[in-house]
Nucleic acid binder design. Structure first.
Lengths: 205, 205
DNA sequence: ACCTGACTTTTTTAACAAAACTATCAATTT
DNA sequence: AAATTGATAGTTTTGTTAAAAAAGTCAGGT
């Protein structure tokens, strides 16, 4: 890796950081490329030198967020004393992630119907990683004889994640039936998820 | 009840039935009052003689659907041998209801942001009734000593319903397709729900 | 290779008229 | 008096267009 490319990577990082702040604060559609460029005291054209378009820039930021989020999970997984602890950490970390970046995700709310495929690749990637970690946790518990043997850990984790998702989108809260919950509901969602964990983990024993 | 009012009620029923067919086939916004009137060979003005406005007409139809649906549930509840059976019946009946009337609910998707309060009263009423029935089933099992005593059956049922919803809308398959799953996925969804019921019921024991 | 000002193209917004539809009502029939 | 309608008033949706704003491009400078 040459010094030139190091410099390039540093600049890319700066752009990602500035973009993240704008997206987080104002949302996708109320952030202009000119504003991002202005924050960095560079020309808009330079942004297009580093990123092909606005949407790719947004998704690059999102990939970074996803990567940080997954690293947070991966660092901790493998060191849990029981399954409940693992599930709890997943739910809490996820909750924190959503709360901290809530406004960033207004991109989802605006385009709701047809989002670019790349977005779903990222979401899918996160989900796959989560499934792997949680299924691993189950497997590990089975091997420690804390859990009865289970036919298909992945299927169970999928049901668990879907259930968590359902607590986000369905039910009494999202009467304003959007794909994404309102901020005031996040804590209530979190509490329900904790209850689900208790029942679910006990049901697996 | 006089003969005149009987006649009136019959006509109201006819209007509800014709409206239901239109709403089911074309959705709310693509159904005009003229078309409904035309189907019944009556003038549009007469519709307004029987119902105050289009939205009230729609909601009258919806109330009827909700009532039929709940009766279906209530007839069966109280006669289950165990909790699993009750949960299963709820799942199957609800699914059937949604699938059969899928197009009718276009109204929800179109107005998404701000639906009339009356709609949410109806939806809330359905949900409350479901919660009551399922919570009752739990309570009944507790009293039969098939289930350990439980702090808040209602909260548990809410989580259960949300989880079911999540298995329908979320997850690996229809992350893109926001609202309803494809037919190919119905079996997978059903299997996941069975799995959830098993884990959930066991977790409550 | 990195960067910009000026430029072109696309998208959003606002204004407004035409069309479609909801809703009302005086008049008419039963 | 209750049921019904044609005509019409009022409102929402749709289509059109022009201006503004923002995305995206490029020739040329460092």
């Amino acid at each position: 890796m040459s010094a030139v490319n190091d410099q390039q990577d540093i600049k890319r990082e700066k752009i990602l950081e500035a973009s993240y702040q704008r997206f987080l604060h104002y949302g996708y559609s109320k952030t202009t490329m000119n504003e991002i460029a202005g924050d960095l005291s560079m020309s808009k054209a330079l942004l297009y030198y580093y990123f092909p378009d606005k949407s790719e820039l947004y998704m690059a930021v999102m990939r970074k967020l996803a990567s940080d989020y997954l690293k947070q999970l991966e660092d901790k997984f493998g060191h849990f004393t029981d399954l409940r602890e693992a599930f709890l950490f997943q739910v809490n970390t996820h909750h924190e992630f959503i709360v901290n970046n809530y406004n960033f995700f207004d991109f989802f709310r605006l385009n709701e119907q047809n989002l670019p495929d790349t977005i779903w690749e990222i979401v899918g990637h996160i989900r796959e990683a989560e499934i792997k970690l949680l299924a691993g946790a189950i497997q590990s518990e089975v091997e420690k004889d804390n859990l009865k043997p289970v036919a298909n850990p992945i299927e169970i984790v999928e049901v668990f994640l879907d259930a968590l998702h359902g607590i986000k989108v369905g039910g009494s809260l999202s009467y304003k039936k959007l794909n994404f919950p309102h901020k005031e509901h996040l804590d209530e969602i979190h509490n329900k998820r904790l209850l689900l964990i208790d029942i679910f983990v006990k049901g697996l024993k």
